[in-house]
Write a protein that binds this DNA or RNA. Structure first.
Length: 463
RNA sequence: GGCGGCGUGGCCGAGUGGUUAGGCAGGGGCCUGCAAAGCCCCGUACUCCGGUUCGAAUCCGGACGCCGCCUCCA
């Protein structure tokens, strides 16, 4: 079974799934009040890769990721734009899915929305009140973190040391600055729900407890998100579950950030801090490859040069797909290794890639192995071992599919003008009329084509 | 103040105490009518100072630098 770093234990630990052969994952999704940025993109990719690989290796995965559609920021944005909250959330949720679709991120099995679970949240809060771990102040209900013995487990700090570092105190009446809002009393003009403790709306940390336990059940396997969610969000979720005596996530997985080389990201250089912008100017697969080439817990740098680096590496992969005419895989479909044929050499490749992936999702190692295999496949083909070369190439494509990276052979249809130029060039070359052959190539290049002369004549493709 | 992480060749980015990471860029060569694609070869890196060791980028100690979390955040 895969070994993953567990933030609660602060070490790489084998994933012991609750049900053999099945893995349940709850991922904290976005608050939809603005366009997704590069960090969201990495986040989505990391989890898509984990999910896909688990499925590829033969496990049944249930993957749930929520949408937070009620929150201070949504309200603030709606106010600023003088529109309703629903308009804000509808707009940005659509942008979210559009970006993820473009990235080739498969949709979750379920995408619960917080506003659909308010009733359950109210019930949970009532239980917390009954157990005396929540208390009321003038502006709402708060959770008493002092009631949870090991509060600070995820943060890796004691309650005392966390308390001493607390910097902001929204409500000075709180018993501890770390206590968090379970329920915020309604304010004029804000969305609200009625409850036994008055009209209002839930605090952020409760929704994920309700939705994860509700959809995946007690003791679900993996709970994840960005490193920034580890504390206080995940800590607070866990605190509520613990206070209720519920068995929460078995494994906590957090990924690192996207670093931006500030100056290089300046507007003058085509600033693309929004994921939507990046995807408009880059092959989304390049971003996936960039993400794959660093470890999920490390920070990654996203800059025009690292993106370009990835684009060029991707071009080599596509060249492989072209050379061996690989069928495209890994779109919205979640591939399984068992549906491919693995001869000895290919099996060995898969085993090495798999071992890397099982080792805390070591995608950089997996990618390195696959690039080495790519060179081997090309070498074999150069040496006339076409058969072995092809089956190796197919295996490489399959492994990348397991990582969600689709290799594209690009069989784009040619317009009449292009087809004519290609035919004329072939004719000129057949007659060893190099001057005209070069002229037609020049014309094709001017039309934006990359021209290659293969065994069967001139081949053009888009750059 | 507390907790945690990082400092690798031109760039990105892995790393087990002794053997090539990988990619991109660059140089040389093969192939090609010329290209492109592909293949081969090359740079011999690990912040600094001590220590452990036959041997450390990899372990220990220290210094310097950088970053994150402790507040909404993927």
């Amino acid at each position: 079974m895969i070994r993953l770093y567990d933030s609660a234990r602060a070490q790489v630990t084998p994933l012991e799934s609750r049900d053999k052969g099945r893995v349940s994952i709850y991922l904290c999704g976005p608050t939809v009040y603005d366009l997704p940025h590069l960090g969201h993109g990495r986040h989505a990719l990391v989890w898509d890769v984990l999910r896909r690989w688990l499925i590829f290796s033969g496990l049944e995965v249930r993957f749930v990721s929520n949408i937070t559609d009620i929150d201070d920021k949504i309200i603030a944005r709606a106010d600023a734009e003088h529109v309703g909250e629903e308009e804000i959330t509808a707009t940005y949720e659509a942008a979210w899915w559009a970006a993820l679709d473009a990235l080739g991120v498969a949709r979750p099995d379920a995408t619960p929305h917080a506003t659909a679970y308010v009733e359950s949240m109210v019930e949970l809060i009532e239980e917390l009140l009954e157990r005396d771990v929540a208390y009321e102040l003038d502006d709402g209900l708060y959770f008493d973190v002092g009631a949870v013995a090991d509060y600070g487990l995820l943060a890796g700090q004691s309650l005392e040391s966390l308390r001493s570092g607390a910097r902001v105190e929204a409500n000075p009446d709180k018993r501890s600055p770390l206590d968090f809002a379970l329920w915020k009393n309604a304010k004029f003009g804000e969305p609200s729900w009625s409850s036994p403790f008055g009209s209002g709306r839930p605090g952020w940390h409760t929704e994920c407890v309700v939705m994860s336990l509700g959809l995946l059940g007690d003791g679900f396997d993996i709970h994840g998100g960005g490193l920034d969610l580890k504390f206080p969000h995940h800590e607070n979720e866990r605190a509520q579950a613990v206070a209720l005596g519920r068995h929460f996530a078995g494994h906590w997985v957090h990924h690192g950030w996207v670093m931006v080389g500030e100056e290089k990201m300046s507007k003058s250089l085509g600033n693309f801090t929004s994921l939507t912008d990046l995807l408009a100017q880059t092959d989304p697969r390049a971003y996936r490859l960039l993400v794959l080439r660093s470890h999920y817990r490390s920070p990654i740098e996203v800059s025009p040069s690292t993106i370009q680096d990835a684009e060029r590496a991707l071009a080599r992969l596509d060249a492989l797909a072209r050379r061996f005419e690989l069928a495209p895989l890994a779109g919205t479909t979640l591939e399984r290794a068992s549906s491919f044929e693995w001869r000895d050499e290919e099996r060995a490749l898969y085993d090495v890639v798999h071992a890397a992936m099982e080792d805390d999702l070591d995608t950089p190692a997996a990618v390195a192995v696959l690039f080495e295999a790519l060179t081997r496949a090309n070498t074999l083909a150069d040496e006339g071992e076409g058969d072995r070369a092809r089956s190796l190439a197919v295996a490489i494509g399959a492994c990348f599919a397991g990582l969600g990276l689709r290799l594209v052979a690009d069989a784009s249809a040619l317009d009449t003008e292009t087809a004519t130029l290609v035919a004329r060039r072939d004719q000129a070359r057949a007659q060893r009329d190099w001057a005209n052959a070069d002229r037609y190539r020049g014309e094709l290049v001017a039309l934006g084509w990359i021209v290659e002369d293969g065994p069967s004549g001139t081949v053009v493709r888009r750059g």
